[in-house]
Design a binder for these strands. Structure first.
Length: 112
DNA sequence: ACATTGACTAATT
DNA sequence: TAATTAGCCAATG
């Protein structure tokens, strides 16, 4: 993984507003799309996004990136829950996963 | 080149 | 909602 890719992912994750979230797949798609638009080949995928966040440590709001079903990474479920509660992120009925219907965010989404 | 693994996703049952 | 299956991209040995 090049630094270009790392930076692209981290920049995007950094741009997610508090109380909102993106899925791994969405992040991967936006980043890959950007690389393609720049004339390069599409790079990365959902798992690569996970790898990047894992390496990034606490330097990014990783709790705003969740799986497609709204669950946090299993290893940091408790920490993620705490963050969500602190940011008033809309949660599902069981309070264990994000309510993507209302919390999902995309670049240029100014609603919020 | 092949197999394994990983903070994944979509379709099927 | 949960379990299975197949697909995906990149790193590692």
């Amino acid at each position: 993984m090049d630094e270009e890719y790392l930076e692209a992912v981290l920049d995007l994750v950094d741009a997610i507003p508090p109380g909102r979230a993106m899925t791994y797949g969405s992040v991967a798609e936006v980043v890959a799309d950007a690389f393609e638009a720049r004339g390069g080949r599409r790079r990365g995928g959902p798992r690569q996004v996970g790898q990047v966040l894992a390496r990034a440590g606490g330097d990014v709001p990783w709790w705003r990136v969740v799986a497609a079903d709204g669950r946090p990474p299993a290893h940091h479920a408790q920490a993620a829950l705490a963050r969500w509660r602190a940011e008033a992120t809309p949660l599902g009925r069981d309070g264990q996963r994000i309510a993507l219907r209302s919390a999902i965010w995309f670049p240029d989404d100014d609603s919020g």
